[in-house]
Design a protein around this nucleic acid. Structure first.
Lengths: 194, 194
DNA sequence: GAATTCGGAAACCGATCGGTTTACTGTGGC
DNA sequence: GCCACAGTAAACCGATCGGTTTCCGAATTC
């Protein structure tokens, strides 16, 4: 455990990992011990455990999205860029300590949709839908809004399937997304004719 | 709270509701108080809280499936029978105290896939996939196994979407399932030619 | 009517919960 | 040297955790 990072960074990192691995009911004591930070420091850096939950979720966002979304340098077509998300999710799911999408899992545990952590989760899901939507518009999809939501749903469905450890069916998310894109007439390398 | 049912039934009912509404971390005291059962009775009816979790999940199964699956008296085609599941899910999701599929949510909270409750959840998901599979075979689907898994995934994706309270898009599960069935060439009222 | 069983109420156990407080150690500025 | 600050360790708070035990009342059985 590196002491180099600031207490705040160490706390956010440890919280991100422990809330994911053990659930949001992990104790504050265990959290602080893992982060090498005193409870006193934690409670003057964050108003409450609930706020730490939300902030640790939010702080994971950029790295998570970078891991999931294709970068701007990927100049393949929208279809390929969309399917990249599902391929990368498949890779994460294959890890045996995968416990579902951190945002959905946290929202499930929190139950209360008004909880600051739930708000962050909702925001992240919207960003995923927005990414799909942008690509679908580029591809000239007929109904990009509906299709973007459908793709988000498949993403979360694939994650749920991994959580319950249903018999693995490799790449099922990508296959399903591809089927939906096929049905919408969105083919490889294709851009909207304009 | 009815005192008519046996302590075991009252306990299973209360557990089914409270574990769903408040999460599996709800205390045994609160549980027993809600059920009108003493802790002593609880612990001689169930070995542990974990066993109660599993048994209450299992006991909900039949009613849940009856609410979700079309009955044998529904003699419409496989496509309609499959879409019925999604329509009924939509109705459940519309309730403002919907907190996701109880089986997936519990598995998410338990984290441990070896937990007896997780085993029950996995079993229920397999039963849903099996239902889809049977209908798809009746419809003469080309690849019923893959398609059944895809439909299960859409089911769980729609539930996840409701949990994070993403902007509601009514019937999106049914629409997506229908799109997948269309793509597979499974049309209304159609039975396999044999 | 006596004995036995069932089950609820509640005390009890050590551990942990979220959160606060005190006391102490380092490290920087000046 | 000295002061102020950041931060850790640990005690402390009342509440609750999963689980066990004791006690006692209300049935059931013969």
């Amino acid at each position: 455990m590196s002491t180099s990072a600031t207490p705040r960074e160490r706390l956010l990192d440890a919280a991100g990992e422990l809330f994911y691995r053990d659930g949001v009911n992990i104790g504050v004591d265990a959290l602080c011990k893992a982060a090498g930070v005193s409870k006193k420091s934690m409670y003057q850096l964050f108003r409450s455990k609930d706020e730490l939950i939300a902030e640790s979720l939010a702080s994971r966002g950029p790295a998570y999205q970078t891991m999931l979304y294709p970068g701007a340098e990927d100049d393949r077509g929208p279809r390929e860029r969309i399917l990249t998300v599902f391929d990368r999710q498949d890779a994460m799911v294959a890890s045996d300590n995968y416990l579902g999408c951190p945002y959905v899992s946290t929202a499930v545990e929190l139950k209360n949709p008004e909880h600051p952590g739930s708000v962050v989760a909702r925001h992240f899901k919207q960003q995923l839908t927005d990414f799909f939507h942008r690509e679908l518009v580029k591809a000239g999809a007929e109904d990009p809004s509906t299709l973007a939501v459908q793709l988000t749903m498949i993403f979360d469905g694939a994650a749920a399937r991994a959580v319950v450890r249903a018999q693995p069916l490799g790449g099922i998310g990508a296959v399903t997304a591809a089927a939906l894109l096929d049905a919408a007439g969105i083919h490889a390398g294709e851009l909207a004719l304009s």
